[in-house]
Design a protein around this nucleic acid. Sequence first.
DNA 1: CGGCATCCTATGAGATACTG
DNA 2: CAGTATCTCATAGGATGCCG
Lengths: 131, 131
Amino acid sequence: MAVPEGVPELPTGPGIDPACPLAAFPFQVGGKWTGMVLVALADGPQRFSSLRQALGSVTAKVLTQTLRDMARDGLVTRLDRQENPPHVEYGLTDLGRSLTPVIEAMRAWSDRHLAELLVHRERNGDLAVDR
Amino acid sequence: MAVPEGVPELPTGPGIDPACPLAAFPFQVGGKWTGMVLVALADGPQRFSSLRQALGSVTAKVLTQTLRDMARDGLVTRLDRQENPPHVEYGLTDLGRSLTPVIEAMRAWSDRHLAELLVHRERNGDLAVDR
DNA sequence: CGGCATCCTATGAGATACTG
DNA sequence: CAGTATCTCATAGGATGCCG
């Protein structure tokens, strides 16, 4: 529980830098997808579906919830173009962008130390036998 | 869910800097207590009970699990002095210490931007009506 | 396309009681 | 003192199906 999920199966979807170290960061930022959304939107606004592809295996429902919560907290903006078919764009607010250094710190850590953590974990086995 | 818990009721136990900004960081690092453990051990090893007091409201069971997972991942060491009454000390490994910059980034963020996030959240109400 | 509505399950985490 | 052992509960998050 120190680390919610095994890294190997973490969602490094195409769209995001395939080797994105953040995807491998074993500590979550907010919800499971919050950190990835911040990264994905760092280079500019994205549409819902585009974002969804970038994140890989997230379901529409979960992504919607993540974005709603982030919007509530003032981290992302939601721009509905009122078109048909629907066209909604999400982008970072200044507040959302202010988290960049944190994300970067995580990214840097993963680059340098994640491998070692994984070695430890494998050596000590998944203690999570049952519990 | 972008932010697991309301900050107000976050565990800012005595022992840790009462105004520890990390305690207020709305994004979790690993488990609910993992980040606080890293902070608490930053200044040197601590005994189980001492650590528990520092964290405030954590139960023994949960703290044990947190520490076990962290030990498994090579973040903390566990030193059992084999005494009676029992005396066990936990300390950071180099790997654990390597997370300091990340923790600091979070701490800094909370200092500067947490208030704003909370304003947004209150303004937009707890969207988490039910779910 | 960008969602909801529903249902479901795994599990993080707290409460309580007991032990070497 | 430093844990276990149970029980319980809330909820994050996934699956599926429908809609404007």
